[in-house]
Amino acid sequence: MIYSIKLALKSLWFEKWIHMLTVVTIGVGLFVLGLIFFSLYNIEGITSRLPERFSVTVFLSAGTGNREINQLRVRLREDPIVKRIKYISKEAALVELRTSLKDAAYILEGLDENPLLPSIEIRLKENGFDKKKVEGLINRLKSLRDVDDVVYGENLLGTIYTIRNAVKTISAGVILLFSMAIIFVCYSTVKILFYRRKEEIEIFKLLGATKGFIRLPFLIEGGTLGFLGGLLGGAGTYVLYRFINGTVISDFPILGVMHMPLGLVAALPAGGAILGIIGSTIALGRLKF
């Protein structure tokens, strides 16, 4: 093992130009992957905070009695996706409307009676922020006798989910594509290195080297190339994040919600090493020796 590591390190040094090129190529690939994971992480973060802002308002029919209202409140509290509810009487609704109208509140002066309906505002649990679950709840509410109407951010919910799913699908495709590209780069490099050392390998074989002994330095080399590429990609991702956070954010404050998990930066070298080993393994498996 130690000798295989020495062989791999020696080869990394002797073939430094090929290796440098490979590391930069892998680094660029992993930098793109880093950006994708960074984007996905932040999109997930933003969407996971949406339930806090999202609410469903259930308007009750005029004349709904206290008993029915209480029954409905109990029923809603027991619902698995409901976090909390708030009952707003028609009087409270009018006060709220008057407050929100501010200087225009005079338009309510001529009203003889309160035209507003009592309502229940529902806040959802994080795990309940799912399009199907929300629609299920809405349908259940609409079927109730005392419910006049249910209002919720239907379009917002749909748009968020469309965007989130599209980003996830595209990201998965790009991740797959770039991972394959990185594997291919390692595969090609190991193949080139193998052919360059063919004479040496032939001597190894004649002296009684097993396939494992011959393969191990190449696997270490592939893993190291991936790891170094990952370090480069991780550093690039982190530098970009710092740049956005330090310079760009003053012009685009919305970017302030973005966050870079350090685990992602650390995961890139590990991911690179794994992809490098996969590429080397495929190359060595296809080579006849």
């Binding site: 002797f14 040496e200 032939e202 001597i203 074989k205 004649l206 002296l207 009684g208 080297a209 097993t210 396939k211 002994f213």
Partner: peptide, 22 residues
Amino acid sequence: SAIPYLRRNIGVVFQDFKLLVN
């Protein structure tokens, strides 16, 4: 897979030496 182990019982002096130049 057994060939390497057999070769370890055989020492070979090659006509063209087959030494690693580096």
